[in-house]
Design a protein around this nucleic acid. Structure first.
Lengths: 214, 214
DNA sequence: CGCTGTGAATGTATTCACAGCG
DNA sequence: CGCTGTGAATACATTCACAGCG
């Protein structure tokens, strides 16, 4: 009901948690749960009730005092906050193993990410068709991005190529990039850039484990 | 030189940043850079010099006042801190697209992660061989984990199966789990568990982009 | 009465700024 | 001198605790 306007300072972590609340609420709605309290939601999402109430309070007021949050409404509100109430045209830069895995990743479609183009520089790969999408040379990315009004790109190239690919995507007018290549890349300020680094996560494990023993 | 003992309270973010410093230092060492200042390293790693000096100070003293940090030594020290100065026997639970992509991911081998087993419940997949590693039924994971002294597991199953798989891995004596399945999973306290969630990252982008316009 | 929403209080992380060493 | 290493200062995030509403 309340508008999804920002009221106060929220952190990047708040937004990440909203994503996780959204996922839980999505499951709850499928199971036809009507109402949930911050206490219950905290258990399901792996956080604490105060955190949830605070996170939500940055974006509006969604609950009913005395009972809790209406699951369906809250889910829709968070969908709107996160920008998931529409589809996002997305391309994949890099048609390797990881690219293929992301292409087939069911969760993307579920949340409205539509992969409408795949690029690679390898002539062996160009021309192949993945579930209706033809792999194009990277040099054609500007046309595809313009014609299909693509806004997001997933970069899954080798590290050495990542920056050049990001530059090309930015010139082509991309608005957001999720970089999986294990290298720091730069983009102009109008492009939203985020990095996913799998080895960093693994090293978090080895750090903790090694600390445990030694 | 200085011991990699903890001196003061460090955050999880510090450890994540150490990983990124490590990657940069690794590149620098390959280019035969001898010494680097916190200023230069900050540029390459995308942070600020004070942050680097503080992060390092939690684990020892590694620099030379007036000149900077010896690249090779610092890299080795961070390797030791992160537990990367040895190899880690790892299994993959789930032989789908993402599993295959991780199996082929070059960075893992580079940093000492050795994938010595792949499991799946699908009889279609069991028996297939990936680059010398035979896909085994999930039910055999305990034997493999014990025999091959496996410590880490990458969980890349569908969401619905993830918790059962994690339970089985934990019973089999796994020490660390990196969960890619889009569901919160639980593990006993002696098992180090970490989640990677790709949609959360993407939703960070859509949140920022939608905020930009509206 | 139960639960949300939220200022105030606490706890953490980052940045500053400079003493001290090479 | 230049740069590290680090307490002190600041900024930020989380948790508490309770007023207020359904």
């Amino acid at each position: 009901m309340s508008p999804a306007l920002v009221r106060g300072k929220f952190s990047e972590s708040s937004v990440r948690r909203l994503s996780s609340y959204h996922r839980v609420l999505d499951d709850l709605a499928r199971q036809d749960t009507e109402v949930i309290s911050s206490n219950q939601l905290a258990v399901l999402a792996g956080t604490n009730p105060a955190q949830i109430r605070k996170d939500l309070s940055y974006f509006g007021t969604f609950g009913k005092r005395g009972s809790g949050y209406p699951v369906r409404d809250l889910r829709e509100s968070i969908r709107a906050i996160l920008g998931l109430n529409r589809s996002w045209r997305t391309v994949l830069a890099g048609a390797g193993n990881l690219g293929h895995a992301l292409f087939s990743y069911k969760e993307f479609a579920r949340y409205g990410f539509e992969i409408v183009g795949v690029f690679d520089v390898d002539p062996e790969k160009v021309g192949k068709i993945w579930d209706g999408v033809t792999i194009s040379p990277l040099s054609s990315c500007a046309e595809v991005i313009t014609e299909k009004q693509v806004e997001l790109a997933l970069v899954v190239t080798p590290a050495a190529a990542a920056q050049a690919v990001v530059d090309e995507l930015c010139r082509a007018g991309i608005r957001g990039i999720l970089n999986f290549a294990p290298r720091k890349v730069e983009a102009p300020p109008e492009v939203v850039l985020r990095n996913v680094n799998i080895t960093v996560e693994l090293e978090g494990l080895t750090f903790a484990l090694q600390r445990g023993i030694c």
